[in-house]
Write a protein that binds this DNA or RNA. Structure first.
Length: 292
DNA sequence: CCTGCCGCCTGCGCGC
DNA sequence: TGCGCGCAGGCGGCAG
């Protein structure tokens, strides 16, 4: 569930609470949590024991903790949490892995109700884990190339929201912020990417950056206790949402009732007046042909 | 190559 | 009260 602002909030917490500390013990409480570590849970634990965490980095929704030239790579999936706290507190039912440190201070727990998240040892991954080479830069990192993104977006033959959710095109955006950004840009989720004008594509990117930045300022979005920072606290961007989860409620801009449409076995939320359904791709093509 | 679909999991709220 | 269903912040793998 966590998207870029939530993962960044977690990353910042890890930077503060685990960087510079040396791992003492590693317990894998659910093998699925390390399913991408092909050598298995015992190897995962063995390779991390005694290693010192030297940083906390992130690209999109992935984060990793460098240890020398290598890294511990994590993805929170839909319900993952990384929590730092008193090592003596009870181990709750959804804790999938637990790390203690040689200083006997707060431990680190990977909690994940739905087990879509995972941890994996990323050899040679301190700067950028090879396992996530297919993940595009996110819009808040220096490596993000605005011109390249706009060009690639307009070359896609798909719907606009689909494209925003494609982590190999731009990373960090999930279902909440895709809907919120499209509302801010006044564009419909089904708009064909190959009919976007350059200004529309630029507007989309600006809206994405704004909504991610605003959410980050607020410490992320929490609907419930499933998304929390490393200290177990919720972010408060939820109160700033305009369309996500607001079906039947008035659009904050024009008052029309927000609609929810089925989309990729999930949902797309939009304002029917601010974000009118696009003309068919055919109409766009005709229009373009006529104007050139 | 690109695009789209499917499965992977648990838990909650809803209508019957 | 119980039960089935739909829904939930995401990804990798694979087919066409």
């Amino acid at each position: 569930m966590p998207e870029l602002p939530e993962v960044e909030t977690v990353r910042a917490g890890l930077e503060r609470h685990v960087v510079g500390r040396t791992i003492d013990t590693v317990e894998v409480l659910h093998p699925r949590a390390v399913r991408r570590h092909l050598a298995g849970p015992a190897d995962f634990a063995a390779v991390l024991r005694g290693r010192t965490i030297t940083g906390a980095r992130r690209r999109g929704k992935y984060l990793w903790l460098p240890v020398a030239e290598d890294a511990l790579l994590a993805h929170l999936g839909m319900s993952g949490q990384l929590l730092v706290g008193d090592p003596a507190r009870p181990v709750s039912a959804h804790v999938r892995a637990r790390f203690t440190f040689t200083d006997a201070g707060p431990d680190l727990r990977f909690t994940d109700q739905r087990t879509f998240g995972h941890l994996v040892w990323a050899g040679g991954g301190a700067v950028l884990p090879p396992l996530i080479a297919h993940i595009a830069p996110d819009p808040l990192e220096p490596a993000f190339d605005e011109e390249a993104f706009i060009a690639r977006l307009r070359l896609r033959h798909t719907g606009l929201k689909r494209a925003l959710l494609d982590q190999s095109l731009v990373s960090g955006i999930g279902n909440i912020y895709a809907d919120e950004a499209l509302w801010r840009a006044r564009l419909h989720w089904a708009r064909a990417t190959d009919t976007l004008t350059r200004p529309e594509a630029t507007r989309t990117l600006s809206a994405v950056r704004e909504v991610l930045g605003d959410a980050l300022q607020a410490g992320g979005t929490s609907f419930d206790s499933l998304y929390v920072n490393v200290n177990g606290e919720s972010g408060y961007f939820g109160r700033s949402l305009s369309v996500y989860g607001k079906a039947g409620q008035p659009c904050p801009r024009c008052g029309a009732l927000i609609r929810r449409d089925p989309f990729m076995n999930r949902s797309a939320h939009s304002c029917p007046r601010c974000q009118p359904r696009p003309r068919s791709r055919r109409d766009h093509r005709d229009l373009r042909d006529r104007s050139t």
